[in-house]
Amino acid sequence: MATTTNQQGHQSDVGVFASEVDEMKERITDKLQRRQDERVAKLEEIKTQRESATGKQENADYFRSNFTKEKAAIENRLAAVSNNVDKSALTDLFDELVTDVQKLLKFVTESTLSLTSYQIRKFQDEVYSLYADVEAKRNELIPKKKFAFKGRQKKSDKPKQVDKPKAVVEEVDGPAKIPKDLLKFQCGFVDLSDSDMTLKSDEIQAKDVGLTSLNSCTVKLFGSPNAIHMNNLKNCKVFSGPVPGSIFVDNCQDCTIVVSCQQLRVHHTTATQFYLHVTSRAIIEDTSGVGFAPYNWSYEGQEEDFQTSQLDRSRNSWDDVDDFNWLASDKASPNWSIIPPEKRVASW
């Protein structure tokens, strides 16, 4: 009995619930529908607003036509650039062009949503090639200053620092003007042939030494420069005390280089012999036919120089050379070799 009543009571409860649930369902569906309508309306509104604002649809076609237009405009301006404008105006003009190309690239980036990845790639490539064109033309019309040394450079930085505020003022109107002697080495030799040169410790101590375009010369650096940059040497002999930094050898042929350093970096060099003390590693890149042997030059005061440069005399990996063009580790690079002991020069 009791069970039945309970059941009945329950049933009636269920009935009440069911109707309530139905009602609720309706209410919620209504609400959802209303919301959906509102949202659609709002989207419509935003869309029409946007369309009326730009007057055009933001889609791929719109992008393409605008892109083509902008690109053509830049190309036309680039074609119109000629040499009869004066130099500073020309630089300005190119700067403007570059800014516009960058804007174009930004435009592509911003429109990625409406483009396929193929299109993005394609448009980007177009922008990059346009940029390359601008740069090529710039290089043609405003040739980069040819880099050259004029004997030894000033020995102290002080006068330059006095001049500095002036340089900043000049810089305000126009693209950065690089002071002419800023990009030169402080000491070294350039454009010489058939001569013997030496530099003493106090002249090169902790400085960057540049040796450029020498032919059949012998250079002796008695001391400890911070770095040595050798460029375009032919048939030269170079000797140096301990270098705590790097030695660069670039574009050299038929040279003998007797140096001690932390790192040796050799590029575009052929048929050159190194007598080397290197505490970390020597590397070669785009280089062939180079030989290595241990460092065997000595001079008075060398021991002191080793101490001040803090170059470790006990660690020398002259025979451990990394070839950046030869990444196979199981086979030795054919570009360098160890000079056999009997072929080494015993003393200088």
Binding site: K106, K164, A176, L182, L183, A206, K207, D208
Partner: peptide, 22 residues
């Protein structure tokens, strides 16, 4: 730390950093 190094300000000019707007 090297006596021959250019100050940061000269590098800023040489690298034309002021032109970087992006």
């Amino acid at each position: 730390d090297l006596p021959g190094s250019l100050p940061a300000d000269d590098i800023r000019q040489t690298l034309e950093l002021d032109d970087i707007k992006t």
